[in-house]
């Protein structure tokens, strides 16, 4: 069951073009959507989750026309939004059971079992009877995960899921997602590059409503091999370096600045070769060295 997105555009009433001709084809597995804040990630996620209509374009999951038959999609959708609230005075078990009904889990016994399992899986079993109003951010996030997992979804949309999780929770959650990816389409948006590099078989980079690069992490990294060069500079030399070389990223290391530069050949004696990673892919894409956003004036063939 593939998720096919064709030429989706969305312009908000204030003139912001959130999505500009987005087309993606996503097979079962974990798919990562990387992009800076405001790139259109959440707009795309909400559109996939049937919460808003695209201005043009089509979205299909298997034979489901997401735009025309939102309810059919919802039956097989797990959605974890970036921001959400819960009824503060309801208990976790109560509200999860409520969602189980809403998600079509019939039969009291089946519901009880799935609710219990999910609460245990998300480590909320001990606090199941407490009011959600008293939950910490991470607990609330895990509750959202439990809700998203209800009803064996074939499409999981997870919008910035790991933001509120502690490292242990993050690992467990990502493991879960990859497991889900064996049978379903899991579409994950994030601005954390590691999330994608650790998990995703496919990925896309989005900026200003456009898909700049659609690839798989390994071949993207391979594609950059021999093109990333690093140099340690002092803070005051950095502007000069940026003038003379295509700096894709800078990073502080022990009080000094390490700059990564994109070049087909070694730019100079002070530079040393650097093994590229996904972060370099991301920054090169954003800087227009590779992908659909390659700048004409850069004159560099991808």
């Amino acid at each position: 069951m593939d998720l096919r997105i064709r030429d989706v555009t969305k312009t908000y009433s204030n003139g912001v073009e959130a999505l500009r001709g987005v087309s993606l084809s996503i097979s079962p597995g974990l798919y990562g959507l990387l992009g800076p804040n405001g790139a259109g990630k959440s707009s795309l996620m909400r559109t996939l989750a049937t919460l808003q209509l695209p201005d043009t374009g089509s979205i299909h999951l298997g034979d489901i026309d997401v735009v025309a038959e939102p309810d059919r999609l919802r039956r097989t959708l797990g959605y974890l939004p970036q921001e959400f609230g819960v009824y503060p005075k309801a208990s976790a078990i109560d509200l999860l059971d409520h969602f189980a009904v809403l998600k079509g889990v019939g039969g009291r016994a089946a519901r009880k079992e799935v609710v219990e399992t999910l609460l245990r899986q998300t480590n909320l079993w001990d606090v199941r009877k407490q009011k959600l109003g008293g939950f910490s951010g991470g607990m609330r996030q895990r509750f959202g995960v439990a809700v998203a997992l209800l009803g064996s979804p074939k499409l999981m949309i997870v919008d910035e899921p790991t933001a509120g999780l502690d490292p242990g929770e993050r690992v467990r959650f990502l493991n879960l997602l990859s497991e889900l990816g064996e049978t379903s389409v899991v579409f994950l948006s994030t601005h954390i590059v590691e999330d994608v590099s650790e998990l995703c078989t496919r990925m896309a980079i989005i900026d200003r409503g456009q898909i700049l690069l659609e690839t798989d992490p390994t071949s993207a990294i391979d594609g950059l091999s021999g093109k990333i060069w690093r140099r340690v500079v002092s803070k005051s030399d950095l502007p000069a370096l940026e003038q003379s070389h295509p700096v894709v990223s800078t990073k502080l290391l022990g009080g000094r600045t390490v700059a990564h530069v994109y070049a087909d050949t070694r730019p100079g004696p002070d530079f040393e070769a650097s093994a590229p990673d996904l972060e370099d892919v991301y920054f090169c894409t954003m800087a227009g060295h590779i992908g659909n956003g390659v700048r004409e004036e850069a004159g560099v063939a991808p």
Binding site: G106, V114, Q130, R172
Partner: peptide, 26 residues
């Protein structure tokens, strides 16, 4: 929440284990 002023914290310390999603019929 009026009744639970302080945020609840879980006291689970066990090592992370994989989550398995229960299959249910809808």
């Amino acid at each position: 929440s009026r009744r639970r002023a302080a945020p609840v914290e879980t006291t689970v310390t066990e090592a992370p284990r994989a989550i398995t999603v229960p299959e249910v019929d809808t």
